[in-house]
Amino acid sequence: MSATATADLISRAQSGDHDAFRALTAPHVRELQVHCYRMLGSLQDAEDALQDSLLTAWRGLDRFEGRASLRTWLYKITTNRCLNARRSAARRRAHEWDIPGVHPPDPTRLGEVVWLEPLPDALVAGGVDALPGPEAHYERVESISLAFVTALQLLPRRQLAVLILRDVLGFPAKETADMLDSSVESVTSALKRARASLDRQRLSNPDREPPPAPRSRSEQELLATFVRAYEAADLEAVVALLTDDVFISMPPMPYEYEGLDTVAEFCARIFRAGRRFELVPTRANGQPAFGTYLRTPDGTSNGVGLFVLTLAGDRISAMTRFEKGVLPWFALPRSLPARGGLPGSRP
């Protein structure tokens, strides 16, 4: 959009033209939604914060003087609305174990970020395409991975905002300071502490192989092998696909399991309980994912959750399980019709 066209829309919107405001903000809405998701770790909370931010922008548009770009002004409003949400929100409580007929093994630990939700790739594609500034530190896909978003939630509020604005979006220190009504020195200090905190969380394992390229042949072969093994409840085949430090989490349940033996026991208890599944592929947070459907005696399969996989080379290094309520976000059905053939067979 040309500067003249933008100026005309701003003038019309400041005069009360709702259509002009929507046209003005439309190019930025999706990336602002992803920004809210990074800040809050929950798609539902992100949508609430986004709508609150757009309402604030509409009401305050007469005070927009063009000293910064419209995009920067919108990011300032949205960031501060998210900070307010983090300050005031009563985070969702952890859920109790909800897998019938399965007694869970003792968890390695209890996770803190039980409000974490997945982000459909349909939103990622439109919300991460805007080119980050030259000072961005993280790759686009890395910046919305489940591991990264989880780590962000453990940062203090101001450090979180600074790290996203500087290292993810690449805003200069001066612009970041202006957005947060702070000083460059304070922003620089907060960024240093945030980076150190992420380093302590060891988000990246230097000995771990990088994941295969999304939708590449190697990724598809690994996923196909996983689907065959998991749907057949072939414990040995599933375990053969896992890294030694594999990790399972299940928000909003706090149970977390780490290490090959522990995760193998977890999977064994699921399979020994007689639970058999159909997996339907999708993608979340730039990662492969599957809607999980529990087979029933009449042959139908009911949706019970969503798996998001983290890959490392030709292995799986993490599995995150979400509740069935997220399935509609991925245009996945609540149930699957009965398949033909013998029980458990696939055409």
Results as ranks from 00 to 15, higher is better:
6 T>I: 13
11 S>N: 15
12 R>E: 08
13 A>N: 15
14 Q>H: 07
16 G>F: 14
18 H>L: 08
20 A>E: 15
22 R>G: 12
33 Q>P: 00
34 V>R: 00
36 C>I: 05
37 Y>G: 01
43 L>S: 02
49 A>K: 00
49 A>W: 00
51 Q>L: 12
53 S>D: 00
56 T>V: 15
61 L>A: 14
65 E>S: 10
66 G>C: 13
68 A>R: 14
69 S>C: 11
70 L>F: 15
71 R>K: 10
73 W>K: 05
75 Y>L: 04
76 K>Q: 15
78 T>D: 03
78 T>G: 12
79 T>R: 05
80 N>D: 01
95 H>Y: 07
100 P>Q: 08
102 V>N: 00
106 D>F: 05
107 P>W: 02
109 R>E: 14
109 R>T: 15
120 P>R: 02
123 L>K: 00
127 G>C: 09
130 A>F: 13
131 L>V: 09
133 G>T: 03
142 E>I: 03
150 T>K: 06
150 T>S: 06
156 P>V: 01
157 R>C: 07
157 R>A: 15
159 Q>S: 06
160 L>N: 11
160 L>Y: 04
160 L>M: 12
165 L>R: 00
172 P>K: 07
177 A>D: 12
180 L>F: 05
183 S>F: 06
184 V>N: 04
186 S>F: 02
189 S>Y: 06
190 A>T: 01
195 R>S: 06
201 Q>S: 07
202 R>K: 12
206 P>V: 03
208 R>T: 01
212 P>D: 05
214 P>M: 04
216 S>R: 04
216 S>T: 06
216 S>M: 02
219 E>D: 08
220 Q>I: 08
223 L>E: 10
225 T>L: 06
227 V>L: 12
227 V>Q: 15
228 R>V: 10
229 A>H: 06
230 Y>G: 11
234 D>V: 11
234 D>E: 11
253 M>Q: 12
255 Y>H: 11
263 V>I: 14
264 A>G: 13
265 E>R: 06
267 C>Q: 14
269 R>W: 15
273 A>E: 09
274 G>K: 03
275 R>N: 13
279 L>R: 06
289 A>N: 02
291 G>W: 01
293 Y>P: 04
295 R>F: 13
295 R>W: 15
296 T>Q: 13
297 P>V: 05
298 D>N: 12
298 D>V: 02
304 V>D: 08
307 F>P: 04
308 V>Q: 07
311 L>V: 10
312 A>F: 02
315 R>D: 11
318 A>E: 12
320 T>V: 15
323 E>P: 02
323 E>S: 13
328 P>I: 10
331 A>P: 00
332 L>P: 07
337 P>Q: 09
346 R>Q: 07
